[in-house]
Design a protein around this nucleic acid. Structure first.
Ligand SMILES: [Mn+2]
Ligand SMILES: [Mn+2]
Ligand SMILES: [Zn+2]
Ligand SMILES: [Zn+2]
Lengths: 149, 149
DNA sequence: ACAAATAATGCAACTGAGTTGCAATTAGGA
DNA sequence: TCCTAATTGCAACTCAGTTGCATTATTTGT
């Protein structure tokens, strides 16, 4: 399993959890560690199969992921085929911590990556339309990820 | 019910259906007529409740909507809460016929509207990132719709 | 206008991701 | 170490969406 890896970053994960008032548990260490080491966002099914269905109850995993989202440790992205993918907010990833990011969807492997985006330059591209008041923008980029490219 | 309205645009709907090799049936006339008169995209539940659950079987409605999508008469948008909304491709709506459009999500009523977008000016805002090859962009705008504004 | 061929419909049964309730276990502070 | 509240795991449940199939409606050719 991933105990070796998790051992190495365990301190960091422990810190992230306590920082958000989440008790440090076996399940949370496993899941957050896994999310941190994965660059692409992950689904419940994916996480479940990697960690092993015998090692985490499915309900606990749902609740764990929700807890991460509620505490602002992670966020979830709804895919086109209505799956949920989870990604941690983490500065090491070339991702983000803020809301100002786009999602990159690989046409080949269908993985989703978080992506920073220049919000201000984006604003000018979408002008107001009659009656509609635009408050914020959300971008989804499609193409090929580094692995499939 | 909507028979009055549908009677008026019935010819148009019939034409759209046959054009796409779809047989003209009571259910399809009702559903396509309703989609055409609604500016915002609609969910299965919404359509079902407007037309009346006694008037259309839920399975038939699922199959009807799928048929519209497969034949290119309509497209579906997955919402953030993982519902599917359906909207016809229709030039009367200030919407679109092509793929070059954004979706506007009202923060207040949560309705989704199709929206044309200037694709070329958008391209310059998102520059390539190391390894990622961007092929297309998808925009989601959040704000207030004309009704809620 | 009629009949045959083919597609659409409606119903019942099923599927499976996600939820709820609750009792047993565990983390963390006193 | 002990206490309390949070977390976990299991079983039961929910409900949107699917599947199979017998019935019905549409289209096309005569
Ligand atoms: Mn993201
Ligand atoms: Mn649209
Ligand atoms: Zn890829
Ligand atoms: Zn609105």
């Amino acid at each position: 399993m991933h105990y070796l890896y998790i051992k190495a970053m365990e301190e960091k994960v422990r810190h992230l959890l306590s920082q958000k008032d989440l008790k440090v548990t076996r399940v949370r260490l496993l899941v957050l560690g896994l999310l941190l080491q994965n660059r692409a966002a992950m689904s419940h099914a994916e996480i479940s199969s990697i960690i092993g269905e015998d090692n985490i109850d499915k309900v606990t995993l749902y609740r764990t992921l929700n807890a991460f989202v509620e505490k602002g440790l992670a966020h979830k992205v709804a895919t086109e085929d209505r799956n949920w993918l989870y990604a941690v907010y983490e500065e090491n990833h070339e991702t983000h911590t803020s809301e100002d990011h786009a999602h990159f969807v690989c046409d080949e492997c269908e993985k989703i990556y978080c992506f920073p985006v220049d919000q201000t330059s984006f604003e000018i591209t979408t002008q107001k339309k009659q009656g509609f008041k635009i408050r914020s923008r959300e971008v989804r980029l499609h193409g090929l990820c580094p692995i499939c490219n």
